[in-house]
């Protein structure tokens, strides 16, 4: 089982769209996939029309009295399940902090899922916190959607340093440009000449496209209603590239 987190310190960069669309594509290939909506805002749960509620809240997640699989919901798509968001996820930080192993608290949560899934895609909340550290701890790879702007690149640098400082080097960083608007000269400039430190950037980028924004109206992955759009093709390419990096 591979755990891939869609993560960025900044919000509104396309984390949820990435998790949802890549999850859909991998499940379509026959893999068993779980999307874990860890963001209290519950956008991924909304896209899949699942109530953002876990019986027992996030306490239930960590205490493991009953199997985690019981709170998982099937989506409308084959092989694709969702661990919904819960508003109490905003307290996850506190719960982890009081736990025995505060930096490794999610390990035991994720372990039983190995019998069920090939991929777990985590949709993280935007922040850099104890929860993020825990997510990095259990992840094999980090998908980092990054808007090609100066501030976004600065944030990415912070994350790269954080990973080294907290000895989380086992996790592979897979940053890629997201919401790219070719009409903007800054986007074009950064895309053509990315800073040297960012040689780890993936080749695929996701364009800024109305099809992706429409996910909120359609409440479905892009490929289900605009399969031939640039955005859908870009997500397919991104998934292919991510898979090749994971092997």
């Amino acid at each position: 089982m591979k755990v891939i987190a869609s993560y960025n310190i900044k919000g509104g960069v396309g984390k949820t769209a990435t998790a949802v669309n890549l999850g859909y594509l991998s499940a379509g290939e026959g893999a068993r996939v779980l999307i874990w909506d860890l963001d209290p805002q519950g956008a991924a749960s909304f896209y899949f029309r699942v109530k953002p509620k876990i019986k027992g809240g996030s306490k239930r997640l960590l205490r493991r009295k009953r199997p985690l699989i019981e709170v998982i919901k099937g989506t409308d798509y084959r092989n694709l399940d969702l661990l919904p968001a819960d508003f109490s996820n905003r307290h996850l930080e506190l719960l982890l902090d009081h736990g025995k192993n505060r930096r490794r608290g999610l390990r035991k949560v994720i372990k039983p899922l190995r019998d069920y899934y090939d991929y777990v895609l985590i949709d993280c909340a935007p922040s850099i916190s104890l929860v993020s550290e825990n997510v990095l701890d259990i992840s094999d790879a980090l998908l980092i959607p990054t808007i090609p702007t100066t501030l976004s690149l600065r944030t990415l640098n912070t994350l790269i340093d954080f990973r080294i400082k907290h000895a989380l080097t086992h996790v592979q960083l897979l940053p890629f440009f997201s919401m790219v608007d070719r009409r903007k000269s800054l986007h074009r400039l950064i895309l053509e000449r990315p800073p040297k430190k960012l040689s780890i950037m993936l080749n695929t980028f996701i364009p800024f496209a109305s099809e992706v924004e429409k996910m909120g109206v359609r409440r479905a992955p892009v490929a289900t209603y605009a399969g031939r759009s640039r955005a859908a093709v870009a997500f397919e390419q991104l998934w292919t590239e991510v898979k090749s990096c994971l092997d």
Partner: peptide
Amino acid sequence: TAETTSKKPIRFLQDLPNGVMKRQ
């Protein structure tokens, strides 16, 4: 408990793609 797709005929375990189905 598991589902997988395969292009080649399945006879032995090694004909299956890696994943939950193969493990089970």
